[in-house]
Design a protein around this nucleic acid. Structure first.
Lengths: 348, 348
DNA sequence: CTGAAAGCGCTAACAG
DNA sequence: CTGTTAGCGCTTTCAG
């Protein structure tokens, strides 16, 4: 039987030596490597006494399990691949923080990639993630390239699509309906008595969720019997500069709109800046609504009406869903609609 | 010698089967696994003919090397651990995007962690990163806990500290002097004729770089023979709400300042909002300066004087530095001061 | 330039 | 509950 050799005192590995392996811990604790492995992996399957000895020896030796070796042997890494469109947008930042906040303590690391709304880049990121045999993979949105779709379908791990809910997700989906969010904004503006509406969308050709909000907005206006809203599409996704330009174009038209909805709070902020410069009164002359409920929306002059997406909730829900499935591999995907909130403030 | 068995046509692995391994590729290409490994790892060490055959066979079989196995065998994973204070701040978002933009194409994945300016959490994140035998590790700032420091010092990979340059970095440092940035803002305001200065710092107890800017600001004022600037410390790091509160406190004092510098553009934006509500004229009544040069700073009413840190440049410089060291393991750390830029605009 | 063989450090049956 | 024994899929000497 394996045991510490030599004197009664199991020797401490010289600090200068190579890495401390399970074998070393096993020797010091007087058990087999299998027991050490179990003591770390499934503590309940080891007697309290041995567990104590193992943990103590490990501590003494400063043992850190090699996650690489463990992952290879078990064919599963404690990594969650997360693919988002951007790392600049605080929306995804919130989601990532919430995700990491739950995944980290559970021993999972995030491997993050961003693709700037480019489906080909998403494809490459998904492939790169999959190469690590991740415990799960999380992607943003419900629209993907064929190759991404098939890679994801073949993946031997949970796959969750977030920030949008589709009727038939690849596996699981956590988000809300962007289309409904667009409709809600239109209805709110209409309820405020506005009839000539406009929608300013940032990069809607690539940001399909922004496009869905725009679509919902227009739909709701038409259903209410209003003239079709003018839609301004910008190159940038979210910038005050874009908001300024769009606002200027809209207000300089023959028939300026009575209300403008933006696909992002920063766009709306730009409009606020420009309105101030032009002496256009908000909301008297024109109502403004944003999207995101970024922190400044509650404090701007005037305060900004907007839609609050469940950014953090998405992260925690995704994490909880995954953690549940890691526990119970039998569990399958689900669709979790977290909804959104229309926050009515002074601007409209 | 290993060769495809059976008919002349090397068989294609059934799509339903298990994962395609190097062994399979080797068999189809009629070479040894060592050759396949080399064909992927160091193409130049394999004859063009064999390389072609290997790559073709790999392609045919849809072979994707197991990064887990490769990492274990070579004791180095193509992962770069990146530890930032926050994923919400667009500063670090820019840096991360720039980093990933160069590291990704080179085959390295980012393992990201955030600690909210908590040194203990940073410690845990660094340890977790190190467990993966990363190719490099990147941390934010120059101040770390003792344990973090020793773990980093022991790490068998390049370590770079970013966003601040210290005289004696652990290994390499890429950033700029936050203290100098603070001094530059003070000098600018003083040059504009302001004498009663104030500094509003967000969470300076934790955000040591913001604290360094505040320190530089006060120093420069004193050196110029001005009265010591009042320093307002906020709980939050960056929020318009915090800016509003601080601005209100400062302006309601017996002797309101003639110029206020904020440790963040959002703080300054809040002040802008509040000034508008109060009818305080910027910069006539009081000059305002921010930090960050966020997109809105160039478009606000009035436009915002601020400091532009080299956010993207930090990411690309870190990536380039690392890539160089991966190529040449002999290369050592260096200190790269990217500087910053004072952007003078209408607010001050 | 290429092949054979020995691991990397751990997990997972399988016995006992 | 614990130990033995095979690998996980690749990289890397070491020969040739």
């Amino acid at each position: 039987m394996a045991r510490a050799k030599g004197s009664g005192l199991p020797e401490l590995r010289a600090t200068g030596g190579g890495r401390v392996r399970m074998e070393d811990v096993a020797a010091v604790a007087g058990v087999s490597v299998a027991t050490v492995s179990r003591a770390f992996g499934k503590p309940d399957s080891v007697s309290p006494e041995l567990r104590r000895r193992v943990l103590e020896s490990a501590e003494r030796l400063g043992f850190r399990p090699s996650v690489l070796a463990g992952s290879l042997a078990s064919a599963r890494a404690r990594i969650v691949g997360v693919v988002v469109p951007s790392l600049l947008t605080s929306f995804f930042g919130m989601t990532l923080e919430a995700l990491a906040g739950r995944l980290g303590p559970a021993g999972y690391q995030m491997m993050v990639g961003h693709h700037e709304y480019d489906l080909e880049r998403e494809e490459a990121l998904v492939a790169a993630s999959l190469d690590w045999s991740p415990a799960a993979i999380v992607v943003t949105g419900a629209t993907h390239s064929r190759a991404t779709l098939s890679a994801l379908a073949r993946a031997e791990c949970p796959v969750v699509e977030m920030w949008e809910i589709s009727e038939r997700p690849i596996d699981a989906a956590v988000g809300f309906s962007n289309r409904e969010a667009g409709r809600a904004v239109a209805r709110h503006l209409i309820a405020g008595g506005r009839r000539r509406l406009a929608f300013v969308g940032g990069a809607m050709a690539r940001d399909l969720r922004a496009a869905a909000r725009g679509q919902g907005f227009v739909e709701a206006a038409l259903e209410a019997g209003l003239p079709e809203p003018r839609v301004e599409v910008l190159e940038e996704r979210s910038s005050t500069a874009g908001g300024i330009a769009a606002f200027a174009r809209l207000m300089d038209a023959d028939e300026p709109p009575e209300a403008i909805a933006f696909s992002n709070d920063f766009l709306a902020l730009g409009a606020l800046f420009e309105a101030q410069r032009r002496g256009v009164r908000i909301p008297e002359d024109v109502a403004l609504a944003g999207y995101g409920d970024l922190e400044f929306a509650a404090n701007s002059t005037p305060t900004l009406t907007t839609v609050r997406p469940p950014h953090r909730a998405i992260g925690t829900a995704v994490a909880d869903h995954l953690l549940r499935r890691f526990e119970d591999p039998g569990a399958g995907g689900e669709i979790i609609d977290l909804g959104f909130e229309l926050v009515a403030r002074a601007s409209g």
